[in-house]
Amino acid sequence: MTKIVYIENGGKSHSIDVQNGLTVMEGAIQNNVPGIDADCGGSMACATCHVYVKEEWFNKLPKKEDGEEDMLDMAFEPNKFSRLSCQLTVTDELDGLTVQLPSKQA
């Protein structure tokens, strides 16, 4: 289990133990963290699992695949710390990863 911290747009924080191998998106959905819609179910096709990664974590994450940046063009208010949480697989290295959720997904 790896600790992932989700911070809602209003500031409410959820510290969740997520099983390694799941994605940050799945960790949120399976634990009813509000603010991540994941309409397409994780196929990198909809940009509704958009999160802002805390700056200190951003460069520690595996790099984006080609399609992710394209999809982020579609996200609601993306910035340079934006990622799609369905593309972030939870591993021991991510223990303590903190992501902020946008005010809405669409």
Binding site: D39, C46, T48, D73, M74, A106
Partner: peptide, 13 residues
């Protein structure tokens, strides 16, 4: 500008 066009793809609602 007189007009603004936004092309950000489709979203499901």
């Amino acid at each position: 500008t007189d007009f603004v066009l936004g092309f950000f793809g489709l979203i499901m609602q």
